[in-house]
């Protein structure tokens, strides 16, 4: 049985060595080159898209801190107004001493400017910086108040 299969294999191998050889179509290499060119162009395009998407993502990530509630954008009057209200509550809760007189005076001037702006029907581009200044003045008053310093010392 083994001899039969070995003989079959030898016979068939001899026949297979007689197999003719053919040449591929002469234009095949040009088709391959064109396909290669298309593939490379598509790859470059994909890389461009990926780089663009990556750049957009990085820009978005870089801009994120500007959109955080703690650092509202300059032209967002509503955000600064809300922040100002929160700080005012915080300052009033701490207030036992009058605090820094110069800053209190600054706060009063800002309030007056805000009232004037609202009376004139000013838009957010004018209101937002005033609300921002008011928040900063309140933050300064909170930081310099006696209670806040006492809390800070206790925390240390």
């Amino acid at each position: 049985m083994q001899t039969d299969s070995t003989a079959d294999a030898a016979l068939v191998s001899a026949r297979l060595r007689e197999l003719p050889e053919f040449d591929p179509d002469p234009g095949l290499w040009h088709r391959i080159e064109r396909a290669r060119g298309r593939a490379l162009r598509a790859r470059r395009q994909r890389r461009g898209w990926i780089a663009g998407a990556l750049a957009a993502t990085l820009a978005g990530v870089a801009a994120l801190p500007l959109m955080q509630p703690g650092q509202p954008s300059v032209d967002d009057a509503t955000v600064w107004q809300q922040r100002s209200a929160v700080l005012e509550s915080e300052w009033q809760a701490l207030q036992r001493a009058p605090g820094d007189l110069r800053t209190r005076a600054e706060l009063m001037m800002i309030d007056k400017a805000l009232q004037s702006a609202y009376d004139r029907g000013a838009d957010t581009t004018e209101l937002a910086p005033l609300w921002k200044q008011r928040s900063e003045a309140l933050r300064s008053l909170i930081n310099t108040s006696d209670d806040h310093q006492a809390v800070a010392v206790t925390r240390i």
């Binding site: 197999l19 050889e21 053919f22 040449d23 591929p24 179509d25 095949l28 290499w29 391959i32 396909a35």
Partner: peptide
């Protein structure tokens, strides 16, 4: 290319399919 083409052609038996393999 010729060796590739003949190997594919012997297996697939179709010139067009063998050329696709070579490509």
């Amino acid at each position: 290319a010729r060796a590739c083409y003949n190997l594919a052609l012997r297996i697939l038996g179709e010139p067009a399919a063998a050329e696709d393999v070579v490509q």
